[in-house]
């Protein structure tokens, strides 16, 4: 076997040549992939060919029409194919040659890449949408809360478990950061709100609340006792962060 034969061996196993006439009748086929008998009408039997009759008839001699990546079946043989159809002269006759290449493996690899690209794009847009909705909700709540604050109300509206809850600031014991959420501990229950503790801090009346730790803001009049590095509200021990200690003591002194 010479080098050229070796090179072409793969394609011989993975390709097929079919010759047909103007009416789509098969004149010859090498039947490497799919068994196609002479006399069969391709324009009636092969879905891919159906509807193409006029276009194929219009081809100029020698001019190929190339179809890449066609996922279909050629009789009982299903795969990803490349097809080339060409009109040729054979003596006084014209015939059409249909080259079939089976590129299943190659196209499977491309499929995998495209799948990854599309899925990650879809995930990204759906996250962006969720994020946009959340940002809009937060903005609306902030506007309402700003209104409440200027009207002197001691209430704040928060979203927790898909419900809008009107929380009376006088009932709040402390706020606790919890990942992307903030837990609002009141004397009756705990609400969870999608928010940042830093953001909450700016919204609270300064004379009533104080930040005591990276993760905690407490209501000053609910503090029961204070030790070196912690304080107590109800039965909860809350740590006091080093960097917050002096400002806490300042605030307590002012009282």
């Amino acid at each position: 076997m010479n080098l050229n034969e070796l090179k072409l061996a793969y394609f011989k196993r993975r390709s097929q040549i079919v010759v047909f006439d103007h009416d789509g009748i098969v004149l010859e086929s090498c039947n490497t992939l799919s068994s196609i008998s002479n006399g069969i009408n391709l324009f009636e039997e092969i879905p891919f060919m159906q509807g193409l009759q006029h276009e194929i008839a219009k081809l100029r001699i020698g001019e190929p029409v190339i179809y890449n990546c066609i996922h279909t079946s050629v009789f009982d043989y299903q795969s990803f194919f490349d097809f080339i159809i060409r009109k040729v002269e054979d003596g006084d006759d014209v015939k059409w040659v249909w080259l079939i290449y089976d590129f299943h493996e190659q196209y499977e690899n491309i499929l995998e890449l495209q799948q990854q690209r599309n899925v990650s794009h879809l995930q990204k847009t759906s996250l962006q949408k969720v994020n946009k909705n959340l940002v809009e909700e937060i903005e609306t709540l902030e506007r309402i809360n700003e209104g409440l604050k200027t009207s002197g109300s001691s209430n704040i509206l928060i979203k927790s478990d898909n419900q809008l809850i009107n929380v009376d600031m006088k009932d709040v014991l402390f706020f606790e950061a919890f990942g992307d959420y903030v837990k609002i501990h009141t004397s009756k229950q705990v609400h969870v709100n999608y928010n940042r503790i830093k953001n909450i801090e700016t919204k609270l009346p300064e004379d009533q609340f104080v930040r005591v730790h990276r993760s905690y803001i407490v209501r000053i009049d609910k503090i029961e006792n204070i030790e070196q590095s912690s304080l107590q509200i109800g039965d909860k021990i809350i740590p006091i962060g080093q960097s917050f200690k002096s400002s806490l003591l300042d605030r307590l002194e002012q009282l």
Partner: peptide
């Protein structure tokens, strides 16, 4: 489940 199409899939 989503399985993307590459090229074209011919059905009848």
């Amino acid at each position: 489940s989503y399985l993307t199409t590459i090229g074209v899939k011919v059905d009848k």
